[in-house]
Design a protein around this nucleic acid. Structure first.
Lengths: 193, 193
DNA sequence: TACATTATTGAACAGATGTACAAGAAACTG
DNA sequence: CAGTTTCTTGTACATCTGTTCAATAATGTA
């Protein structure tokens, strides 16, 4: 049983309308009414498909997360996460973010709800979880996986947020070089000795 | 020139009403109209003080950030950030978050705008910036301060978010122990060898 | 205390939200 | 192709938003 043609038409129309509106105004300033007017969809119909405008936007995020996963899961990544190999892995991620920066700018915006951030956070966490499993590291250390993963995953997102804050001025190559340097620092705030 | 008494009364009334409403419903479900009804403040008056309900909530966040800073800036913290001394520093922060967890639960909620997260992020970044300056580390390494700081600051927030996700089940002592262990791992995903 | 200043109120407005329901239109199914 | 199912539409309603404005009340000050 496939999708009803009318449903597909309605949703596609709303998605196109959102893309059009996003060219000229911020996501959080787009109302359901405005979106429906442009898409020529009855407002009642809208509410039978989505809860709010974010519901429509979420569709794009799913596409992006899909690309994110693809960028990450290419065969040679499965080699692990050792520091000397981190560059080719990360540059792919940074390339991905760079490719979709117009969306990341929206997602990271002050007025946008945390839900999108969590989607990214969870995606990165899942990647790291798999990496850690494959490499079964530090069984002697008493670290709760969840904390280690959340620490590392959010650190990467912190890097990307900084990149976003600087309007993606840093080239991806430079960014991954920065990451390598950061990772090579043993303890984050050690003194020189 | 001090504040007008009427202004103070209005704002206090709105703040109290918000606290009352937060006991029974989520921040994002509280409308300006409802808040004003409970506070017995004219809606027009509301808009001459705040832009929306978040404007009122922000006041509490300022109080919390103030406490955060106090928790961080106690004299002996100025000793630096070396790994062996990180425990007493961090436990204070974790204690702070634990003390205000009902607020952090709100801030970290899916539907809440990123603005509060940025406020935390910026606060932690500022702390780290000062720590790094005092300890003038790795001048030989070519790291852009901004990236290093955003990486580290967001990593800590990742830890706190994970704590929040687990409903603050982990005791603060255990959490700071986890942090020490994580920091002691040289590269985040090194293989054992 | 009297006066000038400033804040609050109430009312009104156009537009938005979220929900409901009957009537009509479009799509699937045999 | 006909019939049934499902979706969309139009309309309506109560409530909320954000803004404006004149009238009124409270405050600070000379």
């Amino acid at each position: 049983m496939k999708q009803d043609l009318r449903v597909m038409k309605t949703q596609e129309s709303l998605r196109n309308a959102l893309l059009t509106l996003l060219k000229t105004k911020a996501l959080d300033s787009i109302s359901v009414a405005e979106l429906c007017r442009l898409a020529k969809v009855n407002r009642g119909t809208f509410y039978s498909h989505y809860k709010d405008v974010h519901g429509v936007f979420k569709h794009y995020l799913e596409v992006i997360v899909e690309d994110f996963k693809k960028a990450y899961e290419e065969p040679y990544y499965r080699t692990g996460f050792r520091i000397q190999y981190i560059r080719p892995e990360m540059i792919k991620i940074f390339d991905h973010v760079n490719r979709y920066k117009s969306f990341y700018q929206i997602i990271f915006h002050q007025k946008i709800p945390m839900m999108y951030y969590y989607l990214l956070f969870d995606t990165v966490r899942k990647f790291m979880y798999e990496s850690l499993e494959n490499n079964h590291i530090n069984p002697e250390l008493e670290v709760q996986m969840d904390y280690l993963i959340s620490y590392q995953a959010n650190a990467i997102l912190g890097l990307i947020m900084e990149w976003n804050r600087q309007d993606y001025a840093t080239p991806t190559e430079e960014l991954s070089k920065q990451l390598i340097t950061i990772l090579s620092i043993n303890s984050p705030f050690r003194n020189k000795e």
